[in-house]
């Protein structure tokens, strides 16, 4: 028997894997039936940020299309979008006739409801999802400090949350709507999150994510930087990209022109 070391899933007989994933895509929401007007407005937008639209898959949203607007001229519209480099691939919010017309143009019919509700109410994802560069920080709908295994000594006092016991590997502390101060070591594998600033008066060996709801003015202050990952409003840096000379010393971490800066204090 010769065993395949990488396991059955990568067996040679398997040609593909079927998986599900979700993407954030731009939506063109049609508000007028007049394709000419759409073309003019779109032209202005694309001029501002041509790169943004280049080779970008887009969804056409018909939920705002005037009911007395007649038919949607899909061939014209699709041509127009393609002309600007976009890849229109589906519609949503259309009625039966519109959907039929869209299908004739080989556009996919997408489900009507927006998936956002289930997404933001889901339990907080681990850091990388939140820390994706320039992705908007996801806002959990929790109003209190949350954590998988909350250290007992969390005292929310006014506008900051204080932790006085070591934050251990696997523990998470989230200061919702305020600053977070930790007066103890933060272990590798632990996770600090705050909507405001984060202060650590002990070695910071885990992850620290400040400005969770997108506050780009948030900062991280720590006495001894040994972090696995630091992030401000979704702009992050992993340990590998933190220069050796900044490790093990007191630093502050902040955003300057959307760039994450680590500076000695």
């Amino acid at each position: 028997m010769t065993g395949n070391p990488s396991g059955a899933s990568s067996d040679w007989s398997v040609a593909f894997e079927l998986k599900a994933a979700s993407f954030t895509l731009p939506i063109i929401r049609l508000l007028r039936a007049d394709i000419e007007a759409v073309a003019v407005d779109l032209g202005k937008r694309v001029e501002q940020a041509p790169e943004f639209f280049h080779n970008t898959p887009v969804v056409i949203d018909l939920s705002g299309f005037p009911t007395d607007g007649g038919e949607v001229e899909f061939p014209l519209l699709v041509g127009l979008l393609r002309g600007y480099g976009m890849i229109p691939f589906g519609v949503r919010g259309g009625n039966k006739a519109q959907n039929t017309a869209a299908e004739a143009m080989e556009l996919a019919i997408l489900a009507d409801h927006e998936p956002r509700a289930s997404r933001s109410e889901r339990h907080q994802d681990p850091a990388p999802a939140n820390a994706a560069p320039s992705a908007p920080a996801r806002s959990p709908k929790r109003s209190s400090t949350l954590s998988d295994e909350q250290p007992p000594a969390v005292t929310p006092s006014g506008n900051f949350t204080m932790v006085t016991r070591p934050v251990r590997s696997g523990q998470r502390v989230y200061a919702v709507g305020c600053d977070l101060s930790v007066i103890a070591p933060v272990s590798a594998g632990a996770e600090l999150m705050a909507d405001g600033n984060i202060h650590v008066y002990g070695p910071l060996r885990g992850r620290a994510l400040a400005g969770m709801k997108g506050n780009t003015d948030a900062r991280i202050f720590c006495q001894d930087l040994q972090a696995e990952l630091v992030s401000i409003a979704g702009h992050y840096r992993v340990s590998e990209n933190i220069p050796v000379e900044l490790r093990g010393i007191p630093v502050q971490i902040f955003l300057e022109q959307k760039l994450l800066r680590i500076e000695r204090i």
Binding site: P151, P152, R165, V167, R168, S169, Q171, S187, A188, A190
Partner: peptide, 18 residues
């Protein structure tokens, strides 16, 4: 050491005393 650290976190949060 890391696994012990993880266990310490659980001791601090999931015990009867906690």
């Amino acid at each position: 050491v890391r696994d012990s650290d993880r266990m310490l976190g659980i001791l601090a949060s999931k015990s009867r005393r906690a």
